[in-house]
Simulated assay, not measured.
Amino acid sequence: MEARASRTFVVLWDGSDGGYDPDEFAEHVRLTAQGYTAPIRWSFGQGHDDPEPGDQIFLHKTGNRNGIIASGQILSSGVEFHPHWSEPGKMAPYITAEWEVLIDPSDRLPYDQMKSTLTDFKFPVQSSGRKVYSTSDQMLESMWKDHVGKLALRDGNPWLGGSVTRAGGRHSGPCALERHRVGSYDLTGFASTTAVKVESELVSRFADYLTALNHKVQGYRILPEGTTVHSS
């Protein structure tokens, strides 16, 4: 069977604290700048087109300071439906992913630059999880690599510059603690059945307890020697 080619998607963030906790955002920026990846669960809109592990994602911040501020890869197969992050009572599709590069919005790849270059890609992006078709996907990846490469030269940071390939080169070490904000989810195919994320609740309670004692709480990523898949 012919291997499935990876795809590229754009996910959205409106810049609000509700959409991305400020402390978590700052920690993810710090971790990716040190060469670590940051696990995240992100909303994926309705036209999700069956995302798979290894597909690439770009985070497009909307509103003020509009532009691309992150890149990474999807870790989950398909989507899971959870309560919407901003609309109580509404369910929405989510993916599990990890950022490989996340930068401050002041260093973004500007929206105007993308729009003028990616003329075959319809702007603005209206919902999270928009697929980027060829050859726009290659052009976007090239633009982003060039953009963060310039930031890397400015800051003297080779990790930010994307000199390490997506499949390898990352190393074991501290990473953001994966804390799911949703404690349960509906099981597809089972009527009126809800699964409870007991482990997630325990992790969050224990992390909160340690934080209250002024301990720094974080995860640790173990990447076995020779592997080409990120592990957490």
Rank of each mutant, 00 (worst) to 15 (best):
193 T>P: 01
158 P>L: 14
159 W>Q: 03
166 R>P: 02
130 R>A: 10
178 E>R: 11
198 V>A: 06
134 S>A: 11
151 L>N: 02
143 M>S: 00
141 E>S: 10
134 S>G: 03
172 S>Y: 13
128 S>K: 06
197 K>T: 00
181 R>H: 07
156 G>M: 08
159 W>S: 01
187 L>R: 07
190 F>N: 04
178 E>C: 05
187 L>E: 13
139 M>K: 09
126 Q>W: 10
166 R>G: 01
124 P>T: 02
144 W>C: 01
169 G>T: 06
191 A>S: 11
195 A>C: 12
174 P>C: 02
189 G>N: 09
137 D>S: 14
122 K>M: 12
148 V>K: 03
184 S>G: 09
184 S>Q: 12
170 R>D: 08
124 P>Q: 08
155 D>P: 05
192 S>R: 11
164 V>M: 14
189 G>F: 10
157 N>V: 01
184 S>P: 13
157 N>D: 12
131 K>A: 06
157 N>P: 15
185 Y>Q: 06
185 Y>G: 07
163 S>K: 14
183 G>V: 05
165 T>C: 13
143 M>T: 00
172 S>T: 12
193 T>L: 09
195 A>E: 14
160 L>H: 04
135 T>R: 12
122 K>I: 13
181 R>V: 02
155 D>I: 00
131 K>G: 01
129 G>T: 05
153 L>I: 09
168 G>Y: 14
148 V>C: 03
193 T>S: 03
183 G>N: 13
188 T>Y: 15
122 K>C: 14
177 L>G: 06
190 F>I: 05
162 G>C: 02
147 H>N: 00
156 G>L: 08
160 L>K: 06
163 S>Y: 15
179 R>Y: 06
135 T>K: 10
124 P>N: 08
122 K>A: 15
131 K>T: 01
131 K>L: 11
184 S>Y: 14
138 Q>P: 01
167 A>C: 09
160 L>I: 03
190 F>C: 07
157 N>L: 07
149 G>A: 13
158 P>T: 04
147 H>D: 02
170 R>Y: 15
156 G>E: 10
178 E>S: 11
184 S>C: 13
125 V>Q: 05
139 M>I: 07
171 H>L: 14
156 G>N: 13
186 D>Q: 08
196 V>N: 05
164 V>S: 09
179 R>D: 04
190 F>M: 07
152 A>H: 05
132 V>L: 04
160 L>T: 00
149 G>W: 12
192 S>L: 05
166 R>K: 11
143 M>H: 02
181 R>D: 11
156 G>I: 02
151 L>A: 03
164 V>I: 10
187 L>H: 05
